[in-house]
Write a protein that binds this DNA or RNA. Structure first.
Lengths: 393, 393
DNA sequence: CGACTTCCGCCGTTGGTCAATCAAAAGACT
DNA sequence: AGTCTTTTGATTGACCAACGGCGGAAGTCG
């Protein structure tokens, strides 16, 4: 027998082929046959199905290489829309995106999270419906909803678990509530987790080991390892805010322990420290403003906070060995000082093998990492191989 | 839509069906059809193939439920054998196991790892051939070889990467060398990683988030998260030995930094500390002996080392949120003192959500975790769905 | 002992994939 | 310009794996 018959015996399904096209580049049938190892006739049938479903569209002809020019096909990211919700303690940011995380409309509003899940989620649903209408799309175009919450979330049920800053939200049926209003599947996760997802998707698509650190009112991390989000056994992984740091063993944290990173280096902690030193600041935003204004004590405090955070991140580097650490949250907007402090300690404290390919960078998403991540999470649930195969009939 | 129609439309291949039988329990065709959702005839064909390959065997009839009694089939773990190698700095432990990690023969020998890969691997191959012969099996029965090395290992190539305690082994072609001698595929990984695999397989098969901590000459951890080993970007994840601890910022570590956990709480560090305090001890084994003999200073030192390790593990708990932490390595044999120190700090320092379901236990494998893990890793490469489907013809 | 139940092997059907074939649409060459 | 070559696109028949039904086998129950 010849050596060609046993080329690729793996049956590549419709969904798997579709993943190849999700990058938005046009492909010819021959390209896809080449990549998947399947017959052209099979590919043609697959493409017919996907075109019929609206997820794929012909994209003109490519240049001929000497014969008949091949027709190309592209992923139609605008076939459906996705709603992304990033809920914070005081604000909610909503975005309507297409299936490739391109923002079509965006909005930010203040909310009082203590009003409880019913009121807040209804408000979000109202805003969402208006925002979708503003893009000229129908609610029926909505394929999925992604939500990020500032709380530990049981990702399988989408319910918050003992959220410290969301009174009344424990075990609230967030997906159910929003699904009843918006008639689309709803996925919920912790805000830092989706920020990690978002930053990876938009900036580091080829990085399989990424740590996203949010420095704001609290400090938390989202862990991507081997290409996937790692949430831990109870979904509370990445909670680096309550790791003990040597400095400030006398500082009491709201969690009841002493010397937590969050009690020393978060936005609020720095503000309180500056106030005690005679430089009035109430919140992390005030600290950022001071640093931007060139205030010396504030700059020094932020840099020192960076060092403290760096001491914890050095441990994370040893444990997780990431390729990229992204620093986000509003304190990251305070310029390079906090990054410098972090880098200083991490590169000094970790082993060379772990740091030689490690990049420590500020988030480039200008506060949109959460929105991007929520969109990615929602789109992924609709466009995953299994989901595609399921909608085929 | 109702909840029953979407039962299991996924096409379950031969390999996937086989996984169901790997637990060793006998199953009827009807059982398997029920679980996989496939037709009885399909299951029958699959079973015929697996029986022909020797991996499955008829296991008599189950009790009738009113009709003809069904025939059952079990995984034949003794169809092939696996060689497990756990190489340490001074000793090598070999085991011949069946495909279900049951040890058929075991042996421990001293080696000088500084003799270099050629000599050491040849020695191991010689020992392995003799050990296999002692079980009455043929070398041709060998399905795969699993090797654990006390070094960072690039798991994809099986080569050690800049091993600190293995001079001359950098980038050595361990798999190639052993394959040439033993004529079977060889898988290599870091020793702590395979210990994590082994402990999970033998003691905590249902735990998807497990941290294995080895406390011996060095201190390291193997991380299992979402059911899989997480090695990090360069394969040096879990290297907790060089995380800084507050205590002992004056102690210089062999890595060049100061205040590393390993420089303070490893077996050698405790021995050195005791010696300075007037209680002579050269190695971790001496420390264990002293503790067992009821020596007060040694017991206190071990407990304090436990606390120090606990302070690092508390951070790991916050980051990884595991369900189980297993303490292994020869220092773990020093009784409950080290565990008590670890528990004391971890349960005090971590958040209740993370600790309420967390168990911190000593390894129950009596030093065999490495062997078990090497066997599991090797068997897995032979019995994975893809491997099964590949051998079907 | 007969009726019933359940399991097992066999076989025709079905659906999906493949390789082959032919038509169509371009560029290349004379 | 006309023809040839090359590559794509659509169709077709063959093949294979999986399915579901059928009848026989091997038990239990009354």
């Amino acid at each position: 027998m010849d050596g060609l018959t046993k080329f690729a015996p793996r049956p590549t399904g419709v969904g798997e082929m579709f993943q190849l096209l999700r990058d938005g580049k046009p492909r010819t049938r021959a390209d896809l046959a080449q990549i998947t190892g399947q017959a052209r006739s099979t590919i043609a049938a697959r493409i017919d199905v996907l075109v019929a479903s609206g997820l794929l569209a012909p994209a003109g002809e490519a240049t001929s290489t000497g014969g008949r020019p091949p027709g190309t096909f592209v992923f139609r990211a605008d076939a459906r829309i996705v709603l992304a919700v990033d809920l914070g303690a005081t604000h909610v940011r909503l975005a309507v995106t297409d299936l490739a995380t391109t923002v079509l409309a965006e909005q930010q509003e203040t909310v009082t999270i203590a009003d409880g899940p019913g009121a807040v989620l209804d408000r979000i649903a109202d805003l969402a419906i208006a925002l979708i209408a503003s893009t000229g799309r129908e609610i029926t175009d909505l394929a999925a909803v992604g939500v990020g919450l500032p709380a530990p979330v049981d990702h399988t049920t989408g319910r918050p678990v003992s959220p410290p800053i969301m009174p009344g939200w424990h075990n609230a049926d967030v997906p159910g509530h929003l699904r009843r209003r918006l008639h689309a599947p709803v996925l919920v996760d912790n805000d830092v987790n989706i920020m990690a997802l978002g930053e990876r998707h938009t900036e580091y698509p080829d990085v399989d080991h990424l740590l996203f650190v949010k420095i704001a009112t609290g400090i938390g991390a989202g862990i991507i390892s081997d290409g996937g989000l790692r949430r831990g056994a109870q979904g509370v992984g990445g909670d680096i805010g309550h790791i003990a740091v040597p400095r400030g063993s006398e500082v009491v944290c709201h969690c009841g322990n002493v010397g937590c990173l969050e009690a020393v280096a978060s936005g609020g902690a720095i503000a309180a420290e500056l106030t005690r030193a005679g430089v009035p600041a109430a919140t992390g935003a005030d600290v950022v403003a001071l640093v931007r204004a060139g205030n010396g004590p504030a700059t020094r405090a932020v840099r020192e906070a960076g060092r403290t955070i760096g001491s914890v991140l050095a441990g994370c580097v040893s444990v997780l060995n990431p390729s990229v650490i992204v620093i986000g949250g509003n304190l990251a907007s305070a310029g390079e000082d906090i990054l410098a402090g972090i880098r200083e300690v991490v590169y000094q404290r970790s082993l060379p093998v772990a740091t030689q390919h490690l990049r420590i960078v500020a988030s480039r998403s200008k506060g949109r990492a959460g929105i991007y991540g929520a969109s990615v999470m929602a789109a992924e649930s609709v466009l995953s191989p299994a989901a595609i195969e399921a909608l085929i009939p």
